[in-house]
């Protein structure tokens, strides 16, 4: 086809531009579905429990990702500050993943367990009360807004469609028991989602106010599990090298 013709015909130009760009994308992405080493074989990674899932949705709604990445790169300085580099396996149930690259604040991939629930709650209400030089905004409404969990089943079903193994039937539940153990499988069962969500919030008391189930409960539950699923002590220092 003559250049002249393409340049003078907007429709053809558009289609051909898209084809040219997709080739680049496809060459980079499609092989990853087939290469065995892409997602590391590692124990402990599981889908989010219902309360954590709501917390993640709030994290996205509030735009925390605009200032925080969740991806520790395999560099010395990052390992020293944040801990073990992130694994692909650790975000295999994330849709969409929260890797990001904007770091106005620190990376959060392994922030789980680093601070107390009390700290997380206070820091979200008024970051400068704890870190005087912080530029993070205040999120005081999280502690006063009741958590809406009426559609938790639908949220889990939507993720199920993308391949996250939330269970709907007894048979699926039993498969999860085999894969994740009964303690975890219980939380992945969609029909029990609401009950489990309330149970986890009451037990964990994440927002340090046991009388109320707030958005803060969900967000802190989410933050407190980030990066805690894999026990790196069980693996050789260089175990994950062989997947690259």
């Amino acid at each position: 086809m003559k250049h002249d013709k393409i340049e003078r015909n907007l429709g053809i130009l558009l289609v051909l531009t898209m084809v040219a760009i997709s080739v680049g994308g496809m060459v980079e992405i499609i092989p990853l579905f087939f290469i065995k080493e892409t997602v590391e074989k590692v124990e402990g990674v599981r889908p989010y429990k219902p309360l954590e899932l709501r917390g993640r949705d709030i994290y996205i709604r509030e735009g925390c990702y605009l200032c925080h990445s969740q991806m520790i790169r395999p560099f010395r300085d990052e390992a020293l500050r944040y801990g073990h580099y992130s694994l692909a396996a650790e975000s295999k149930y994330d849709h969409p993943f929260q890797w990001g690259s904007k770091r106005t604040g620190p990376d959060l991939a392994r922030v789980g367990g680093k601070y107390s629930n009390d700290w997380q709650t206070q820091h979200l209400i008024a970051p400068r009360s704890l870190v005087p030089q912080s530029v993070m905004p205040n999120y005081p409404w999280l502690a006063t807004t009741d958590l809406d969990y009426s559609d938790i089943n639908l949220r889990m079903r939507a993720l199920r469609k993308t391949g996250v193994p939330y269970s709907e039937s007894q048979a699926e539940y039993e498969r999860n028991v085999e894969e994740f153990g009964a303690d975890v499988a219980k939380y992945l069962h969609i029909p029990d989602a609401e009950k489990n969500l309330i149970g986890q919030a009451q037990q964990g008391n994440y927002d340090t106010n046991p009388d109320k189930l707030t958005e803060m409960d969900a967000l802190v539950a989410y933050l407190q599990m980030l990066g805690t699923l894999v026990d790196f002590k069980k693996y050789d220092d260089d175990y994950f090298v062989k997947f690259r």
């Binding site: 395999p74 560099f75 580099y85 994950f240 090298v241 690259r244």
Partner: peptide, 29 residues
């Protein structure tokens, strides 16, 4: 060189990749 779960140190040679490069960086540190 990498420390294994059982505490021993092993030396390994691999093709170039970021994670091996990272091991070298940590060794140097």
């Amino acid at each position: 060189t990498a420390t294994q779960v059982d505490g021993t140190q092993v030396e390994k040679t691999t093709h170039w990749n970021m994670r091996s490069k990272f091991m070298v960086e940590m060794n140097e540190l």
